[in-house]
Amino acid sequence: MSDRRIVMQGVGLSKRFGHVVAMEHADFELASGEIMAVVGDNGAGKSTLIRVLSGASVPDEGKVLLDGEEVHFRSPLEARLAGIETVYQELAVATEMDVAQNLFLGRELRKPGWAGHWFRQLDKVQMRAQAAEHMRALGIRIQSVRQKVETLSGGQRQAVAVARASAWGRKVVILDEPTAALGVRETRQVLDLILSVRDHGLAVVLICHNMPDVFEIADRIHIHRLGRRATVVDPKIVKPNQVVAIMTGALDAASVPSALFAPVPA
C-alpha cells in the first residue's frame, strides 16, 4: 500500500471563528483508491476539516493540495468542479423527484440537435439509461430509476446520494456520517456500497462515529484531536480501544505505529 499515490493533502490548516480555534495546523492526506476514515471526539474539529476539504469553508492558514497542485476552493461548487464530491448528512436528495433526476440534478443532459439546442429539451431517456447503468455498476438494486426517492427506504436514499457523488466525483468522494440514521441491515448495505465505490478507483473520505463500521471498511484511520491530526493508523495493526484512547487523549499517539505515507512538507 505504501506505493500509493497521494490524491489529496492538507498542510498546516487553521481555522478560527472569533476567539474559538476550530482547527490549528491540521494536516491531512488521502491516497488513491483508499477509504480514509476520519474519527474524533465531538468538537475535535472534524467538521471544520471536512468543510475545508469540500470547499464549504476557506481556511485562515495552510494549503490544500489536489494531485500535488495547490487549490483554493471558495465554494463547494469549485471543489466539485475539481473532482471532489461530498455527501452531506442531510438534505442530500430531493424526495419528490425520481432516482434518475436526483443523479443528474444540476447536471441535466440535453437532447442532441435542435430540440436540445433551441428548445432546451432534456434527454430523459439517456439520463435514465445512464442512471440505471450506474446503479447497476455499483450493485444498487432498485425497482426503477423512475421511482420517486420518497418511496425509498433510508438506506436506499443514502445509496442514491452516494451513487450520485461517485458518478460525478472524479477523484474524491467525501461522506459525512452516511450511516448515522440507518438500521443494522441498511448500514451493512451502505458500507458495501462504499467499498464498491472505492473498488471503482475513487478515494473515499469517511466521517464516522461508529468504531466497528470504521474498522470494517477503512483502509486507514485519521484520528483528529484538539483541532489537529493526532495520527493516522492502520486498522489491521491498531485496536479499536487504542484508537478511542488516542481520540480522548488517554494514549499518546506516538505510542502506536503511524500509517502515514508522505512526509509532511514544510
Binding site: E133, A137, G139, I140, R141, Q143, A159, R188
Partner: peptide, 12 residues
C-alpha cells in the same frame, strides 16, 4: 459514470 458491472449490496 462508472460502467464496469460488479456485484454489490442488495438495496431492493
Amino acid at each position: 459514470m462508472i460502467s464496469s458491472p460488479k456485484s454489490g449490496p442488495d438495496l431492493s
